[in-house]
Amino acid sequence: MWHRCRKNELDPIHGLSRRTLYEIVRVEETRNYLWPGAVSESLRRWRSFVHEPNHRLWDPRYPGCTEWLCCGDPIRARENLEGAMRALPRRAGRELRVLVLALDERY
């Protein structure tokens, strides 16, 4: 079920509870390595990379244009997700980890 997070009006992450979405917003606001919407953007970027047929051809020496909003770095996106999962309370971290590990399995 999709819930819109009213606190920052960002698109929510499908498959996460309202409580977890709230915790994600809190973590994004309190960690200097994240920004509002970082978890959602990182998950979207990691998902699109993993589902890309040629994803194993990613070469970090040629990261595209290096602009996060344009090409982004899928490895950095995965690192952002890892940081968020570790910073979240246990229950919220587990919910997010289920989504991320499913993508990791595919990768």
Rank of each mutant, 00 (worst) to 15 (best):
V50T: 13
V39N: 02
V25N: 01
N80F: 06
R78L: 12
D59M: 08
C5R: 14
Y33I: 09
L69D: 13
G93M: 07
E29L: 13
T20G: 00
W35N: 04
C71Y: 10
N80D: 09
R86L: 10
T20M: 00
N54K: 15
A87K: 07
F49K: 06
G15M: 01
L10N: 14
E9C: 11
D104F: 01
T30G: 03
R61L: 15
E28A: 00
Y107C: 14
R26F: 00
P63Y: 14
R45V: 14
T66V: 13
N32K: 13
H3K: 08
C65N: 05
E105C: 05
R45M: 15
D11M: 10
E41N: 07
M85T: 03
S42K: 03
Y107H: 13
A77V: 12
M1V: 09
L88A: 05
C65S: 05
V27M: 07
L57H: 12
C70L: 13
F49W: 15
S42A: 15
W2L: 15
R76A: 11
E52Y: 12
C70S: 10
T30I: 06
R56L: 13
D73H: 15
D59L: 12
R45F: 09
V100P: 02
R90D: 05
C5P: 04
G37R: 09
R26M: 03
H55I: 06
L43E: 03
L43M: 06
Y33G: 10
E67P: 01
R91P: 03
N8Y: 12
P36Y: 09
R94F: 10
V98G: 00
E79I: 11
E52I: 07
P89Q: 05
R18G: 02
R76F: 14
H55C: 09
S42N: 03
H51Q: 11
V25C: 06
L81R: 04
V39Q: 00
L101V: 13
P36A: 10
T20Y: 02
A87G: 03
N80S: 12
G72H: 11
P53T: 02
L103A: 04
P36R: 13
R44T: 11
G37S: 11
V25K: 04
A102S: 09
G15Y: 07
E23T: 04
L69H: 09
D73N: 15
R56F: 12
L96Y: 03
R56K: 11
W68P: 02
V100D: 05
F49D: 01
R4S: 09
P12N: 13
A84K: 03
S17Y: 07
P53N: 04
K7L: 14
E9L: 15
I75D: 10
V39W: 02
L21Y: 02
V98A: 07
L57T: 11
A84F: 02
V25F: 05
T20W: 01
R18A: 04
N80W: 10
E41P: 00
V98N: 06
E79Y: 11
E29K: 08
Y22C: 05
H55Y: 12
R19N: 07
